[in-house]
């Protein structure tokens, strides 16, 4: 894939319980369970770093309120880039 991925994902290892639902659900399969254990003793999910489309599916499949944050590449700035509000706004998924 040429250029940067359209999306990216951050996983909060404090919240992730390593259930694997996001890994299973991600259409381009760009999530995986980390081989290392978190301090809760689970293998937390992590982004492989490739191919995320920012679709948000992993966010909705994850049972934890804040384990996953999904980012999308901002449209190339026409005027000023839209600032990200604290806590995030939810774009419609799918």
């Amino acid at each position: 894939m040429a250029g940067p991925a359209r999306g990216k994902v951050a996983v909060d290892v404090e919240e992730c319980k390593g259930c694997g639902l996001c890994v299973e659900s991600c259409p381009p399969k760009c999530l995986e369970l980390s081989p290392e254990l978190s301090h809760y003793g689970v293998h937390p999910a992590r982004y492989t770093g490739h191919d995320c489309t920012g679709c948000g599916i992993c966010f909705y499949c994850c049972p934890e309120p804040g384990a996953i944050t999904v980012f999308r590449l901002a449209a190339p700035p026409k005027a000023a880039p839209v600032p990200v509000p604290a806590g995030g706004e939810h774009a419609p998924a799918l």
Binding site: A5, V9, D12, V13, T48, G66, V84, G88, A93
Partner: peptide
């Protein structure tokens, strides 16, 4: 937030914005 540890190859030049994150309701 610990997410920074797990993001690899963050493309420095491109701007990402949050589209889904923990709700303020929680």
């Amino acid at each position: 937030m610990a997410e920074q540890d797990v993001i690899l190859e963050e493309p420095k030049t491109d701007k990402y914005e949050v589209v889904h994150s923990k709700s303020h309701l929680f």
